[in-house]
Design a protein around this nucleic acid. Sequence first.
RNA 1: UCCCCGGUAGCUCAAUGGUAGAGCAUUCGGCUGUUAACCGAAGGGUUGCUAGUUCGAAUCUAGCCCGGGGAGCCA
Length: 441
Amino acid sequence: MTQPQHAARTIITIEHAGEHVDSTVTIQGWLYNQRESGKLLFPIFRDGTGVLQGVVSQKEQPEAFEALKGLTRESSVIVTGTVRAEARAAGGFEMHISGVEVVHRVSDSEPYPIQPKEHGVDFLLDRRHLWIRTPRQAAILRIRAEVERAARNYMDGQGYTLTDAPVFTPAACEGTSTLFEVNYIDDQKAYLTQSGQLYVEATAAALGKVYTFGPTFRAEKSKTRRHLTEFWMLEPEAAYAHLEDMMQLGEGLVSAVVRSVVKNRPRELATIQRDVAKLEKIVPPFPRVTYDEAIKVLQKAGNPAKWGDDFGGDEETIISKEFDTPVIIHRYPAAMKAFYMATDEQRPELSLSFDMIAPEGYGEIIGGGERQSNYETLLKRLREHNLPEESFQWYLDLRRYGSVAHAGFGLGLERTVAWICGTEHIREVIPFPRMLYRVYP
RNA sequence: UCCCCGGUAGCUCAAUGGUAGAGCAUUCGGCUGUUAACCGAAGGGUUGCUAGUUCGAAUCUAGCCCGGGGAGCCA
């Protein structure tokens, strides 16, 4: 409106505002909030990269003042002004506004529903498509993107090749109770994958060191802050690899990801007020305890756990509180692990498995281990678990043709991001969470 | 599936058997350095639904619906 028609504009994003002090620039964004003080307005703009306070006086910039006065929250605006260092403004910079173009004005009769104050979870989740505009949510999503980028960089750097796994699968990977069933072509049944692992075992035999990274689905009726029905998993698998190799890869991956977030997303970590000192402590090697030792730690802490019990959230928290970094628990009893897990030759009652537990009570972020490479043993396990042999013939082929020791793990992306961000709930770290009884928006 | 907690104005909550309220948001007015600005005024309600107890129910009882947290299971 008040912008000169033919002026050459320097369009910047708010994250770079500090590089343009004392020059006139233009930002394209939305009105996040506005305070009025008589003949002064203090609008706060956001553009997805950050927020920037503006200031405009009625006396000095009457046109810009009128354009902004009474403007509704989340109206889209293109604003031109001079960036000044300003200690009184949040973030340390402020824009002295000279031109305002209101691109779209939010109606007075239907004001933007999300206010800069406390809201209930249900209300926010119903409006997740708008909630993600909130600076805190936007910062979390940018950190998630950094985690994904850093994880892929690390895996690629370690010589692993990304091999995407299918989402439709013919049968369960571990059991049948937790699968989403879908009608495939001509009344054939298919399921949404709960893990890409079986497929990555095949591609590992083809390419050596591989990983898959994609969505997985669990139809479990879990209603907790650690569960989603649709979540993303990064699953490496390597031929000729053993348990020890995967424990090292896991701690290398997790610490590289954390380091990358600390280095590349300091603004976002500040926005969400994450204690960065805690993240800076995440350096390999991570402490390792065997299942046997973990039981002793629990009993010492007064927990009634006994050998053979699986660990729930309480048990994980007790163990993880002993350390500042994630902790690896390895060699769980074979009975509590999946049919494809290899067993310890020295102690056949143990599986060559490991979990990585995040600090601060965020629970298991990695689960994996060495796979059963012997045809006869694997077939026996399949039958013991009452799994449909027909559906697993291709998987058994991997043990018929050049079977080798191999190992891998699955890293839960959302639990990892939730821990790195310190969020209350895992649902905040995925753009559109899918949870029990919630598929909208 | 089981256990626990909750549902009152657009939002966050108060009212524990006796006239349904506050803050924020919205509208109007005031304020030249605000930080979820502040000050004044106005509008805004089938207290999740159904039945019951009672002179009287947001409040007590039963059933149902919806949501949250946890268990199991897992990343």
